[in-house]
Design a binder for these strands. Structure first.
Lengths: 342, 342
DNA sequence: CTGTTAGCGCCTTCAA
DNA sequence: TTGAAGGCGCTAACAG
C-alpha cells in the first residue's frame, strides 16, 4: 500500500492467503469457499479496494478504452455525438479518450499515435478537413486496432462507417427551395475533400438538374464549417449579379453567418433570399427567422458508431465486418424559407 | 510480437542485446554506445515501435492521464472549456478522459470511480447540479489523486479552484438593467446548491439593494441550465402582475428560452422586457435581438484549471497548494437591453 | 478449494 | 557500456 492505493497484496497479507485466492474471490469464481469469499469482499470494501485497471490491461492485453478523434468539440454536432458515444461506452463498460484535431492533419496524426500508445482497443474517427492521406489510420488497423468512422468518413478503408444520407438531405433541402419558387439558388460548399461536403453538393447539383435549373459556378462558394466562413461567403455572394434568391449552406453555422450578413445589409429573409442549413443545431430554432435545415440524428450517430466499434472489438473471428450505416435526415421547415412557418 | 504490437523484446532479440539496453537506448541514456543506440533507434523506427504506455504506467505508477468530469458536453461552456483543457494537456503530454454526469449525482460518483480505476493522475471536476455530498471526491484525494475544481466548485475541499467572479458579473448585469431605467427586474436563478447560482443571485440581490430597489420573491424563479427551463420560467413569470420590465437569467440558454416565450407572446424585447444572460455563448450574438450577457473566458478557464492540475501533480513536496483563481467577466451589451446596440 | 509459478511490457537496481 | 534479476498489480495455468 505504498502509493495510497490498496492492492490485492494488501488484502492477501491481512487475510493470510495468497493473492491468487483474493483475485478469484474478488472476481466471484465458482470454486471458492464461501467464507474466504466473504472475508475478502468485506475487507476489500473496508479498505475501499479498487482494482488497478492498468495492471489488468497489461495482463488482458486490452484496456477497455476507446479513443475518439473529432475535428473540434465546439461544433454542436460533435458535442452531441460524443454524448451518444459516452452513453454507449458507459453501458458497455468502456472508457473514452477524446482528442480534437482542430481541423489540422498534423494534429490528427499526433492524436492517433497518442491514442495508440495508450493502447486503446478501438478508435472512433471523424477526420479533419485537411486529411487526404490515411496512412496513420491504416497503420493502426494493421496493428489490430479496430476503427469505425463516423460523419466524416474515408471510403477507402474496409471498416464500419456511420453517416447520414447527405445526398438525400441535400436534395430535400434544395427541392424545398425550388418548391417555394426560388430559381437562383446558391450553395455554400464545405471543404471538398470531405465526403459529406461532396455529397451535399452533389445533392444540390442533381436537384437543380432534375428541375431543369442551370448549375452556375458563380453561385457555389467554398466554406469551412463555421460562422465566420459563412459571413465571408455571404459577402462574396452579394457581389454577384443578379442576386441569388436562396442559399443552401453546408452547415447551420455557415447559414448563421450568412443570415447575419444579409440582415446587416437589410436583405429580407426569406422574402429576398431564403436560407437553408444542415444539422439542426439547437441554435437553429432560436435565430430569427428560424432556420430551415436538414436535421441529423447527432446523438444516434455517436451511439451507433460506438455500438459498431464494440461489436467489432468483441467479434470472435478477426474477419472484420464493415457495414456502412446510413441514417436518415429530416427536413425541418422554419421561417428562413417560409414566412409563416414556426 | 504476438498481438501485432512491437515490444522492446522484439528489438532486443533481433539485435541480440538485452531489453535493458534497448530500453536505455530508446530513452537516450548518456552512457550508451553510440552504435548500439543508433542500431536500436533505426530498428525501432523500421518496426514502427511504440512504447506501451500501459506497461510504463504500471512501473512508473503514473498514467499521464487526467480525468475530466463535467455535467454535459452540450452546454457550450463545457465544449469550450474542454478545448482549453485539451490544449494544455497536449502541451504537457497528458491524455484526457472525459465523462459527463448528465447532471446526475449517481452518475457523477460512478464516473469518478471509473476514472480512479483507470488510475488517472488527477481530476478536473465541475459538479452536477444534484451534488451536495462530496465523499467520493474527498476519498480520492486521500488516495493521492489530485483534484482541481472549475466553474462549479465545492468550497469545502482544500484544492485549487478556477472560477469567474460570478458575483461581480451578476452585479454588472443587474446594474446595467437598472441603468437603463428598469425597476422590476426578475431573476431566473440556477440550482441553488451550486455556488455559481448562489453567487449570481447574490450579485443580483445586492445590486437591487444598492440602488434601493425592492427585492421581490415573486420575481425570482428557479431554473436549470437549459432552454426548456427558461421557457417554463418565462411562462410562469408572465402570470405575475404587474409584469416585470427586465429579466436577468443565470445562463444564456435560460435567456434564450425566455426570449422565445416572450416573442411568442408578442412582448417586445427590450422595450417591454429587457433580457440579460450569462456566458456569451456563440448563439448570443446570433439571436434577434442579440443577447446582452456577461462573457466568461470559457477556453481560458479550462486552460487554467488544467495548468493548475499539472502543476499540482508534478509538485515535489506533497503539501498541496490550493489557490482560488478568479477570472474576470465582461459585460457585453446587445439589443436585448439596448435598442440600438450591435 | 487454494497456493505456486510464470508472465503481461517496461524500468531500475546491482554487478560485471 | 551492458546484462541479469526483480518488480509494478494482476491474471492464468498447473498442481495439489
Amino acid at each position: 500500500m505504498s502509493s495510497g492505493q490498496v492492492t490485492i497484496k494488501d488484502i492477501a497479507r491481512q487475510l493470510n492467503i495468497s493473492v491468487a485466492t483474493v483475485s478469484r474471490a474478488l472476481r466471484d469464481f465458482p470454486d471458492i469457499n464461501e467464507n474466504t469469499k466473504k472475508a475478502v469482499t468485506t475487507l476489500a470494501a473496508e479498505l475501499d479496494y479498487r482494482p488497478n485497471q492498468i495492471a489488468q490491461s497489461l495482463v488482458k492485453r486490452r484496456t477497455n478504452t476507446i479513443g475518439v478523434v473529432i475535428p473540434t468539440f465546439v461544433i454542436p454536432f460533435y458535442a452531441s455525438a460524443i454524448s451518444g458515444i459516452q452513453e454507449e461506452a458507459a453501458k458497455a463498460n468502456y472508457n473514452v479518450m477524446v482528442c480534437q484535431s482542430n481541423e489540422s492533419y498534423t494534429t490528427e496524426v499526433s492524436n492517433i499515435y497518442t491514442l495508440a500508445s495508450s493502447r486503446v482497443d478501438g478508435l472512433l474517427v471523424s477526420v479533419s478537413k485537411e486529411t487526404t492521406n490515411f496512412d496513420h489510420l491504416q497503420c493502426l488497423q494493421q496493428k489490430g486496432i479496430e476503427i469505425v468512422f463516423f460523419n466524416r468518413v474515408y471510403e477507402g478503408m474496409p471498416v464500419a462507417k456511420v453517416v447520414v444520407d447527405d445526398y438525400d438531405g441535400a436534395v430535400a433541402a434544395t427541392e424545398h427551395l425550388i418548391s417555394i419558387g426560388r430559381k437562383r439558388i446558391a450553395h455554400f460548399c464545405g471543404p471538398q475533400n470531405l465526403s459529406i461536403s461532396q455529397e451535399r453538393r452533389r445533392g444540390y447539383v442533381d436537384a437543380l438538374k432534375t428541375h431543369n435549373l442551370p448549375v452556375r459556378e458563380e453561385l457555389m462558394l467554398s466554406c469551412d464549417f463555421n460562422i465566420a466562413s459563412g459571413m465571408d461567403a455571404a459577402r462574396q455572394l452579394l457581389q454577384v449579379r443578379p442576386l441569388p434568391d436562396a442559399i443552401f449552406a453546408v452547415s447551420d453555422s455557415v447559414a448563421f453567418g450568412a443570415m447575419k450578413v444579409l440582415k446587416e445589409q437589410g436583405i429580407r429573409i426569406p422574402e429576398d433570399i431564403a436560407i437553408a442549413g444542415y444539422t439542426d443545431e439547437p441554435t437553429a430554432s432560436l435565430v430569427d427567422p428560424g432556420l430551415t435545415t436538414v436535421a441529423q440524428p447527432t446523438f444516434e450517430i455517436g451511439q451507433t458508431a460506438a455500438r459498431l466499434l464494440f461489436a467489432q472489438i468483441n467479434r470472435p473471428s478477426k474477419e472484420s465486418v464493415c457495414p456502412k450505416t446510413v441514417l436518415k435526415t429530416r427536413l425541418i421547415i422554419r421561417g428562413s424559407t417560409v414566412k409563416n412557418a414556426v
